[in-house]
Amino acid sequence: MGEVDAVIEVEGLRKVFRGFKSLKVGPLPIPWGQRLRVEAVAGIDLTVRRGEIYGFLGPNGAGKTTTIKMLMGLIRPSAGVMRIFGGAPDEIETRARIGYLPEQPYFYDYLRPREILDFFGKLFLMPRAAREARIDELLPLVGLEDSQNKKLREFSKGMLQRIGIAGALLNEPDLVVLDEPLSGLDPIGRKELRDIIVAQRDLGRTVFFSSHILSDIEMICDKVAIIDHGVIRAVGTLAELLDSEHLEVEIIVRGVSQEILRDRFASVARVERIGEYSRLIVGEGQSNDALRVILELGGHVEGVVRRRESLEDLFVRSAERRGPAVGEEGA
């Protein structure tokens, strides 16, 4: 069959939103004044390989949804190349192999869970028996078998998210694309979602999902990319990204104001507040200097801990920096 190993390939993908800021006067949006130009995705490269769980992480407004929408054919790229399963993303044959959960899954609220899944199944040209069997399988999987007779307008956000997940798995897709799958889910829901994602990978499928919040779910990622301001800041396996190079020391301080600490450590440390204490996080080599300065300022050191950088730290660090991206796409 000669299918390439890469499931999603993106090169130089860009999206610039243009238009006018509009003022709505009655039914007519009147363009006024200032032109709008937002470079939501500023030329990114991505390679997602078969069988990977790929986390696409970054803060709100980073460009995750825009990227995913371009892959899903909802938005036209301004520039760049996209391939899914080695072919054009908008081909019917390609789309038949994709399951997609939109960012805020809005569904036809006049339908019941079964009806909407059945409708989607028809669009995939699944025969009736196959649709019914698959729905019977999916509703319990996403924990909705007890809500079958409610219309979707009575559903909570988390329940809608569950329907969305069922919808994304309906066609037994080779590629599952989930935009913010955690949103609306409680901790139990997150755990279940994590199990579902891992189960998909174990079936040989590829999962690509975005998230702006960090939770345990990132730990199941085979690979993550961190995007911010439309630029990929870091790509790699978690082990690569959280490597020993980024060991840090956490210093808990009392008796010095936040402002003074921030001022003195502006370039070398992050300062966070925990109640009446402050937490300073500095690079490994800088802890002695930092402790000396704190003592000179008359502060009390309450604790010093050496720790490995967490993904959250990487996330914040990547989002804060404006320099070249860290990490390299593995060949």
Binding site: K69, M72, G73, L74, I92, E93, R95, A96, I98, Y100, P102, E103, Q104, P105, Y106, F107, Y108, D109, F120, L123, F124, L125, G164, G167
Partner: peptide, 14 residues
Amino acid sequence: DKKTIFTIIPKPVH
């Protein structure tokens, strides 16, 4: 407006 179109366009439909 209700963004239900997001679930339709990515399906294998023209």
